[in-house]
Amino acid sequence: MPSEKQQEYKDNSIKENEEIYPNPELNENVDELTEDLDALLDEIDEILEEDSEEFVENYIQRGGQ
């Protein structure tokens, strides 16, 4: 019995691991946005008007604690 139990856990974990990295790019259904969320996306657009690539590359800190 104990070995069967162990087996069951193992199977579970394999199943979980397969589903662990859902690909968010594959999810095709684009939901309707609420007005607030839609407005938030517009504000993010504004932030991203600057060159994000350069910004991200330049964001280097020294390690802290």
């Binding site: 790019e25 684009v30 946005l33 996306l41 993010i44 932030i47 991203l48 994000s52 991200v56």
Partner: peptide
């Protein structure tokens, strides 16, 4: 949620600099 929604509605890749920027901002 913010990033996922933005990626979907602006057809971006998760590997893009824009996504990394939102992750910071």
């Amino acid at each position: 949620k913010c990033i996922e929604t933005y990626v979907k509605h602006r057809s971006l890749k998760w590997d893009s600099a824009e996504v990394k920027r939102i992750d910071l901002e």
